[in-house]
Amino acid sequence: MMAAVRNYLGSSLLLAACLLASGCVSMPAPAYQPGIANTEVLLQGKGSLTVEPFVASKGVNNKSLSVRGSSLKGGSDGSFSTYLQEALVAELKTAGRYGASSDTRISGTLVKNQLDDGAIKTGTAVVGARFVVTRGGSPVYDKALEAEHTWDSSFIGAIAIPAAMENYATAVQKLIGKLFGDPEFVKATQDAVAENK
């Protein structure tokens, strides 16, 4: 009988520990914050750009990413393709280079979206997208880019879950940094400025 008592006590404590550790919640991704490095790169260029709605490739986690029983949602419509699109808009607006009616348009497809909170030590987020820039309807840039971001995770869910959610945004920031820093992207958008003059 004492074994049964121990089981009761153990399971109760385990239940309480699980509730403490997991949180079991559904959270939106943190509001995207433009990265200083990205803004600085954009400030060096000229010409306005606009961003069209993004989509996701088939099979990509576009609606929810799981983090130890909790889930992370994407942008204003809950999708991660929209989160990426809205992040690009935020970056361009911060640098004063967003123009809704610009002839140079960025569209994109989310091709990879992974979040691993790291069961013990290191968390990893991998985000990939194919970006297409058109000018006057003609493509001037078409490239798939991918960014991986790692961070110190924790065995304790109460630390690991929010850390994973925060660091997902950093992975997106890195992906956008790769786009803005790509010499071909810079050339394509600079050419647009030259032709618009």
Partner: peptide, 20 residues
């Protein structure tokens, strides 16, 4: 003003939004 809060070198979006 360009501001970024980092935690151990990594951009921290939530803290950036709060402190900016």
């Amino acid at each position: 003003v360009l501001f970024e809060f980092r935690t151990k070198g990594n951009a921290n979006a939530k803290a950036t939004a709060e402190i900016r």
